[in-house]
Design a protein around this nucleic acid. Structure first.
Lengths: 121, 121
DNA sequence: CTAAATGCAAACTATTTGCAACGAT
DNA sequence: ATCGTTGCAAATAGTTTGCATTTAG
């Protein structure tokens, strides 16, 4: 763990957990003015490989980096706003059907957020 | 529906449902030599908006375009190989917890595929 | 002393956009 | 005649890479 990767990990864990590489870069730059984007990307990749954070790929937006702790995502189909929810852990159910060996899963749920629902009425 | 969008939709529905824009472009080009990538992208976006196909964004690979019919994805954490599975539909469960208004969801399950499991032993 | 991490610039990939020409109503 | 679709080229966004330099164990 280097000084950058430590700080990046902290930023992610303190944040709402949906920060893009660019947002993290800008945040980190406040404390470490010399850091460059590539370094942030490199660190994010290493942290992912080590399983200390997870990467969230969503259609139409850059990758986001998230806390590792199990939770699911609620996404507005219209404006893309992302929020966390925790649906019950279905790993057990999945293993019943698919057999052992499941590492993890991503559950992304699409809906219309209150604001967008209002507008469309 | 134009001649291109019709053919693109057919290609997706006849395929295994995990084709990238580039693969679709190359396929379509066999029948329509004059088509260009941008047109394929434009058509894919329109088809998505109309809800006739769905876009699959996975870390580390270009977007893939999939049939709309409900199913889930099993992804090898190591080599990225993608296969379809159909876990039971949890929309009802989700609505119980989150309330009405869920449009759809994506469930991506990570595991080690047989080949990769072999290698790592 | 060595290996890993960084800064920098350039490369690269996937995707989108502007615009002129085309085609089907 | 009009409006959406296409081809084309260029632009953009996000991310990765190569390499020389710095840093930390």
């Amino acid at each position: 763990m280097t000084k950058y990767s430590k700080q990046i990990l902290e930023l992610i864990n303190q944040s709402d957990g949906h920060m893009t590489a660019e947002q993290l870069f800008l945040e980190l730059k406040k404390k470490e003015p010399k850091v460059v984007q590539a370094t942030v990307y490199n660190n994010l990749n290493t942290l992912c490989q080590k399983g200390m954070i997870r990467k969230l790929s969503l259609a139409g937006s850059p990758d986001r980096y998230d806390k590792i702790h199990r939770h699911d995502h609620l996404i507005c189909k219209k404006c893309g706003t992302l929020s966390d929810i925790t649906f019950r852990d279905i790993t057990g159910d999945l293993e019943k059907q698919l057999g052992e060996g499941i590492i993890s899963y991503d559950l992304n749920i699409y809906y219309l957020c209150p604001k967008c629902r209002e507008k469309s009425e």
